[in-house]
């Protein structure tokens, strides 16, 4: 992997959940930021004097659209007191918390990527959590967003799709493209 793994930090599940819950806020729509795992400033980071130690508040699990079957809007649990980050803000790099058994949440592991002093990517795992713990944990994790299935006939160079057989290629969109541009 191309991530720079600089350190492993210990954490507790509560903190980890907050990191996950806040994902919807700091993770911008700009695809550049979502892949900005290298060291260095992120040009797409929101401007302004946001504190480098944490993304803005509004940390509820409803930050992103909920997946079906999950109750939206469940607030993330408040984090227990933890050691604040160094005064200089967050160091650039990718950090993985040790899976932490804590209170009701069983083992939760979260990996965050810090770039330009901000959390740009946060991934989590709910470990062996089950039942309500699992539901709370899952709500705090990043989701895919649902949208309407589109049907487009756009200008494209090529097509990605399920593998066609040599025979099926003949009637495929890719085949039409290849013939049109040959």
């Amino acid at each position: 992997m191309r991530r720079a793994v600089l350190a492993v930090i210990g954490t507790v599940a509560g903190t980890a959940l907050m990191v996950g819950a806040k994902l919807g806020t700091p993770r911008p729509d700009d695809p550049a930021a979502a892949t900005a795992t290298d060291d260095g400033p992120v040009s797409s980071a929101p401007p302004g004097p946001a504190p480098a130690s944490a993304p803005p508040a509004a940390a509820t699990a409803s930050a992103g659209p909920p997946a079906p079957g999950q109750s939206p809007g469940r607030p993330a649990p408040a984090p227990p007191p933890t050691t604040p980050p160094a005064a200089g803000g967050l160091r650039n790099g990718t950090f993985t918390g040790n899976g932490a058994p804590a209170r009701h949440y069983e083992v939760v592991t979260v990996t965050i990527t810090v770039s330009g002093g901000r959390i740009t990517v946060a991934n989590g795992s709910c470990g062996n959590a089950s039942g309500e713990s699992r539901a709370i944990c899952a709500d705090a994790m990043p989701h895919l967003q649902q949208e309407t299935l589109a049907k487009q006939n756009a200008k494209i160079a090529t097509v990605s799709g399920a593998t066609y057989t040599s025979d099926a290629y003949v009637s495929s969109l890719q085949s039409a493209l290849d013939r049109a541009k040959a």
Partner: peptide, 29 residues
């Protein structure tokens, strides 16, 4: 797989279910 994909680092995704629901990660270009 929807949640698993959402948590992938460095890889974006788009999914269509058999029911016709479409999902994608925010960073899909």
């Amino acid at each position: 797989g929807l949640d698993w994909l959402a948590a992938l680092d460095g890889y974006e995704s788009g999914v269509v279910t058999e029911d016709g629901e479409a999902y994608r990660s925010p960073g899909l270009p």
